[in-house]
Amino acid sequence: MDQIAILIPCYNESKTIQKVVEDSKRALPEAKIYVYDNNSSDETAQIAESAGAIVRHEYQQGKGNVIRRMFREIDAECYVMIDGDDTYPMESAPAMVDKVLHYNADMVVGDRLSSTYFTENKRPFHNFGNTVVRSSINNLFKCDVKDIMTGMRAFSYNFVKSFPVLSEGFEIETEMTIHAVDHNMQIENEIIEYRDRPEGSVSKLSTYSDGIKVLGTIGRLYKNYKPFGFFGIIALALVAIAAILFFPIFGAYLQTGEVLRFPTLIVSGFVAMASMISFFTGLMLSNSAKDSRRQFEITLNQLEYQKKNEKNL
């Protein structure tokens, strides 16, 4: 088991990868540096290897697929994940590692949004999107994570080996954050500087399509992790629709003694039934989610025992 592993997912980053690897060596000279190339059509892999990184490959396209491969193959007490585009200064990495190794943090978030992101980033919709995503997750999951979409993070062994990677693309950062929050893992924020990509380096992130995927991921994970809240909102909405349909008919009945719109009354009844079904669905799935959290705690204990055994070998 390595003590510190630096993980760099890459796709066509030949213009910046050498500097990222060299900066990583200076910041954490004791760490092993792994570059995972994701079908690059340029010389990213060759340049990274020449710079001294251990180069491996993931042939399924997508950042989520790369992270799944990295987390599965690398064993370390602390992991530092950073993008290969040279937008994050590695000078912040030692402080992030310290929080994992000495203060029991499971995930340390490199917080760009509290420093230079909004001035350095030249894409206004990305600024807006980061704000929306951060507000949505903090409100839905009752947490205070400062930067949801950051590409610079540090992780504990327990987090990496217990995190089920389901996303294939850039929505993976959102999935990581929600997983840590919902399972009551220790999250720390570390303010880092952000610099825009150097000239000639092109972002792989699609503002609109990837933004929609991220919002879809938030909704999906809210349903999975907070089913009572999710289905409770649907139940309330259906109750409101049923009431809007029912009360005019009931008011007319009180005045005339007759039911004037039977079809509307029937629809109102079915909508009310759907509301009750949604409510009890959320209740049952909530119990299932609690059982899943209990099993997760058992898994963490097993991982801690496994880590101690590997360190002693």
Score class of each variant (00 low, 15 high):
residue 56 R to L: 07
residue 203 S to H: 06
residue 136 S to C: 09
residue 191 I to W: 07
residue 237 A to K: 08
residue 301 N to T: 09
residue 133 V to K: 00
residue 294 R to D: 09
residue 134 R to S: 13
residue 224 N to L: 14
residue 187 I to A: 05
residue 120 E to I: 01
residue 146 K to A: 09
residue 225 Y to S: 07
residue 104 N to R: 14
residue 89 P to W: 01
residue 281 T to M: 11
residue 230 F to S: 06
residue 82 I to L: 13
residue 10 C to Q: 10
residue 221 L to Y: 08
residue 27 A to R: 03
residue 30 E to I: 00
residue 284 M to D: 15
residue 213 K to N: 09
residue 296 F to C: 07
residue 65 N to M: 01
residue 110 G to W: 14
residue 235 A to N: 08
residue 291 D to P: 00
residue 255 Q to G: 02
residue 80 V to H: 04
residue 72 R to P: 00
residue 278 S to C: 08
residue 73 E to W: 03
residue 91 E to K: 12
residue 260 L to P: 00
residue 247 F to V: 14
residue 37 D to V: 09
residue 299 T to Y: 02
residue 280 F to C: 13
residue 299 T to H: 09
residue 111 D to Q: 07
residue 285 L to H: 08
residue 21 V to I: 14
residue 254 L to D: 07
residue 10 C to S: 12
residue 169 G to Q: 05
residue 1 M to R: 07
residue 108 V to Y: 03
residue 280 F to A: 10
residue 219 G to W: 01
residue 136 S to F: 11
residue 196 D to Y: 06
residue 97 V to M: 04
residue 23 D to T: 10
residue 119 T to A: 14
residue 311 K to F: 12
residue 276 M to P: 00
residue 90 M to E: 06
residue 238 L to E: 04
residue 51 A to D: 11
residue 61 Q to R: 14
residue 245 L to G: 01
residue 278 S to H: 05
residue 176 M to S: 01
residue 20 V to Y: 14
residue 262 F to G: 02
residue 275 S to D: 10
residue 236 L to V: 03
residue 272 A to C: 13
residue 109 V to D: 02
residue 177 T to L: 00
residue 118 F to T: 01
residue 270 F to N: 02
residue 66 V to H: 08
residue 295 Q to H: 15
residue 59 Y to F: 10
